[in-house]
Design a binder for these strands. Structure first.
Lengths: 148, 148
DNA sequence: TATTGTTATACTCTATAACTATA
DNA sequence: TATAGTTATAGAGTATAACAATA
């Protein structure tokens, strides 16, 4: 039996895109509806919750977003009083961003909801399968980013 | 030792999004640069290559895109002479779309390039790992799309 | 009335380039 | 000169609503 060597249905980039879109649509709807946050803003919030204070450049590296997205996301978070700007005396072109008390409070509300959503998504997965998926995704990411 | 129960770095929706973005950036650059196609147009081309002729509605189902995207993609493909419109006598609100000879020729050129790219992405994966990844992605997709 | 497909509109995300202020 | 960050602009993806033609 011959069959087409390429079917969209079995094409990895397509499957990856469909799975990722399904998840991010769910996630971004949830963040926006419940907390008024875009995904970029949620990422900045999450990283700052882990890191005390960071420059926009460090945030860009940690969130895999570019500096433009960081600038917009932190502008929105700052306007809501969720993060504050602190001077960077070592380099006055830059500055530090850090959560305010309100930012920490919002994060404390979001984090459990995010974990619950992840748990529901992975409900049918064993611990081993979760680890496998994470490891496989990392390898795909590295392969896609490194030389052609 | 306590550590944060939620770190962005280990958050599945984030890892999935980063991996998918890395792959789709590569793919879409490649399609656009080499063949002048957007991803939506490539998907329509690929499905029509498998299916002879389909209505826009059937195409939307097969590509996981909405009817607006299908309408725009098929408009662009039609303008380049890659697909043609055929009447649907059973329902004259609708029509069939099918590849032209030029469309088939372009697809014959693209398909090997797409497969080569997929092969490079999965270069370090065993056959078993590829199957695992595909199966895990399907399960995530189903979980994300079915009830909250 | 309901459905197929198109068009208009808008919002998000991403990428490029120009700008500012510092270094 | 080069770098950190911001702003402006445009392309691509996605979603809603209004519309034309047909069922």
């Amino acid at each position: 039996m011959t069959h087409s060597p390429l079917t969209l249905d079995r094409f990895l980039p397509y499957r990856l895109s469909v799975a990722s879109n399904a998840v991010s649509t769910r996630i971004s709807n949830s963040y926006r509806r419940r907390f008024g946050l875009k995904v970029a803003e949620w990422r900045v919030l999450a990283i700052l919750a882990e890191s005390a204070q960071l420059t926009p450049q460090a945030l860009a590296g940690a969130t895999r977003m570019d500096k433009i997205s960081i600038s917009r996301a932190s502008g929105a978070l700052g306007a809501r009083g969720l993060i504050e700007v602190r001077p960077n005396h070592d380099d006055r072109r830059s500055h530090y961003l850090a959560l305010t008390a309100e930012g920490r409070a919002l994060y404390a509300e979001i984090a459990p909801a995010a974990l619950a959503l992840e748990t529901r998504l992975l409900d049918s997965f064993s611990a081993e399968e979760r680890a496998q998926l994470a490891a496989l995704l990392r390898r795909i990411e590295v392969a896609a980013e490194s030389g052609l």
